[in-house]
Design a protein around this nucleic acid. Structure first.
Lengths: 173, 173
DNA sequence: CGTCGTGGCTAACGGCGTTAGCCAGCCTGG
DNA sequence: CCAGGCTGGCTAACGCCGTTAGCCACGACG
């Protein structure tokens, strides 16, 4: 499989990611992105058709990295739902802006590397012994916990560790 | 408790809501909102300090209406987690843009009517017999299912009814 | 040595939220 | 009865945003 991006395009994505993680989605602007690279905004369009295409690359990064995190957890403690959940939560909370960007819009499946979506889902599916419905329920729970926490929807004094534990206990087969 | 808004402000919120529900968050613009009311954008600032304040009112509406939906479900079938979940899902999917707007940002607690957040949470908490951790886990599951569905994150052929059923069965005490 | 692709640039467009400042009409108090 | 001020419109404008058009310098290559 050919490289998805030219070296310059990869530099741009790296700068975009730094900007996003440091300052949030609102700060990810074609002009500030260009600034950080020492060029002017219109030059970015020599490398990407539009801003969305840059965001798609960030989404692909997030998917690939969370897949790696889950695979590592699986390798460390095979079959453990708790370990998988811990890895998911840790990754998402370590990259909240990236997680939101990748998550709060329709998945641009056509523009993503083939197999990436499946790869990200497989460790959980294996831990569920192929039970698709259970895997989706657990994914929804984990995503819900993470996204509600990131957006500050839980009361400040909520014991989220306990809620995670409670949900996982009960979701475990 | 005094009225939160003047009549004119309520008209503006109503127009904002129609715009949002018909055309999505991107279409909710101070200019198009003003257009729909037959005035110019700057005039809106006689009624609201900024766009965020309008969005807060929409968030409050969503919270109040979903609380009503849950209370009605509770009245109809007291203690049933399934009925509550069904009501939550139905409400959210009937108003996807409103649900996202109200959900995908930090809760503006200071600007919301007192007690509203609690009221929205109470039916579920009652169904969980006061078990806060369980209630939060179930809320995360329900929110995750709804938001992933709205954003098209599940595969097109996913059987979401089955995933809901599976999650609820297992979360039910 | 010319030609062409690459990757910069400036200028500009239309749309965004928002501000400043103006004004018509109405309500109210003297 | 009229003066004053409040209410709720208006226009013009600012500084952002994503994006396009069109120009140009430079290096690779036939």
């Amino acid at each position: 499989m050919a490289e998805r991006l030219t070296p310059r395009a990869r530099e741009i994505v790296a700068a975009a990611r730094a900007l996003l993680e440091e300052s949030g989605a609102a700060a990810l602007t074609m002009r500030t992105l260009a600034d950080r690279l020492g060029i002017k905004a219109p030059s970015l369009y020599k490398h990407f058709p539009d801003k969305h295409a840059v965001e798609v690359e960030l989404t692909a990064q997030m998917l690939a990295e969370s897949a790696e995190a889950l695979e590592a957890a699986e390798a460390h403690t095979p079959g453990s739902l708790e370990t998988l959940a811990e890895a998911y939560r840790t990754y998402a909370l370590a990259h909240p802006h990236l997680y939101c960007l990748a998550t709060e819009q329709p998945l641009p499946r056509a523009e993503l590397p083939a197999g990436l979506e499946d790869r990200a889902a497989l460790p959980l599916l294996r831990a569920c012994a192929g039970d698709l419905d259970l895997a989706r329920a657990i994914w929804a729970f984990a995503h819900g916990m993470v996204i509600l926490e990131i957006h500050g929807r839980f009361p400040a004094d909520a014991d989220l560790d306990a809620a995670w534990k409670r949900g996982l206990k009960v979701l475990h087969v």
